[in-house]
Computed example of a mutant assay.
Amino acid sequence: MVNMGYAVVGAIFMVGMVLFAFIKGGPRERVGAGYLLAAWFASLLVQENNGFRGLPIGMFLIDAMSLVVFAALAWRAPQSWPVWVAGLQLITVMAHIMILTTKTIPIASLYTVMNLIGYLIIICIGVGTFWAWQERKAAAEYAPR
Rank of each mutant, 00 (worst) to 15 (best):
M1Y: 11
Y6F: 15
A7P: 06
A7E: 12
V8W: 05
G10L: 08
G10Y: 11
A11Y: 13
I12E: 04
F13T: 10
F13G: 08
M17W: 06
V18A: 07
V18W: 00
L19R: 01
F20Y: 07
F20N: 06
F20M: 06
A21K: 01
F22V: 04
K24T: 02
K24V: 07
G26Q: 05
G26V: 08
R28W: 05
E29Y: 06
E29F: 03
R30L: 03
V31M: 07
V31L: 15
Y35T: 03
L36K: 04
L37G: 01
L37H: 01
A39Q: 00
W40Y: 13
F41P: 03
S43M: 12
V46W: 00
Q47H: 14
N50V: 15
N50Q: 15
G51Q: 02
R53Q: 13
G54P: 03
G54S: 05
L55T: 08
I57Q: 10
G58H: 02
M59H: 13
M59E: 14
M59R: 10
F60W: 06
F60Q: 10
F60M: 10
F60G: 07
L61M: 12
I62M: 00
D63S: 03
M65R: 10
M65E: 09
S66K: 00
V68Y: 05
V69S: 00
F70Y: 02
A71Q: 05
L73E: 00
W75S: 08
R76C: 02
A77C: 04
Q79N: 14
S80L: 15
S80Y: 14
P82S: 03
P82Y: 01
W84Q: 09
W84E: 09
V85T: 11
G87W: 09
G87S: 06
G87Y: 08
G87C: 07
L88I: 14
L88M: 11
L88N: 02
Q89I: 06
L90Q: 08
I91A: 11
T92Q: 14
T92E: 13
A95P: 10
H96M: 01
H96S: 04
I97C: 03
I97M: 03
I97G: 04
I99F: 07
I99M: 15
L100A: 09
T101D: 11
T101Q: 14
T102E: 10
T104N: 12
I105H: 01
P106E: 08
S109I: 11
S109T: 07
L110K: 00
T112N: 07
V113C: 05
G118E: 01
Y119T: 13
I121F: 04
I122H: 02
C124H: 08
I125N: 03
I125T: 02
V127S: 08
G128T: 07
F130I: 15
W131N: 12
W131G: 09
W131Q: 13
W133S: 09
Q134F: 11
E135A: 14
E135W: 06
R136C: 06
A138R: 15
A139T: 12
A139I: 07
E141Q: 15
E141N: 15
Y142N: 15
A143M: 13
P144T: 11
R145P: 14
